[in-house]
């Protein structure tokens, strides 16, 4: 992989909506501004859901990588609420 090292990896494979979002949000709450969170998911809704969450919450989806049978999503924390 590139030089981009995630601060946290969430393995949400096998979990369905809203599991991945909930896990991502928990990690987001304890993350620092600028942190990158990597999330692995098999839920077919995860890609669209996490993109929607990022848009709404002001964070950034850096990359969505299709792996064998699952996807890897990299989210950068670009906005923290209070």
């Amino acid at each position: 992989m590139s030089a981009l090292q995630p601060h946290k990896v969430l393995d949400c494979r096998g979990s369905f909506c809203p599991g991945p979002i909930t896990e991502l949000f928990k990690a987001y709450r304890s993350a620092q501004l600028g942190d990158v969170i990597e999330l692995l998911a098999t839920d077919p809704a995860a890609k669209a859901d996490i993109t929607a969450w990022a848009q709404k919450s002001g964070n950034e989806v850096l990359d969505v990588v299709d792996e064998q049978g699952y996807i890897r999503i990299l989210v950068k924390v670009t906005k923290k609420r209070s």
């Binding site: 909506c17 809203p18 979002i21 909930t22 991502l24 949000f25 929607a52 969450w53 709404k56 919450s57 609420r81």
Partner: peptide, 8 residues
């Protein structure tokens, strides 16, 4: 409800 809360 919970998903809505995670979205702020």
């Amino acid at each position: 409800a919970n998903t809505g809360a995670t979205m702020g």
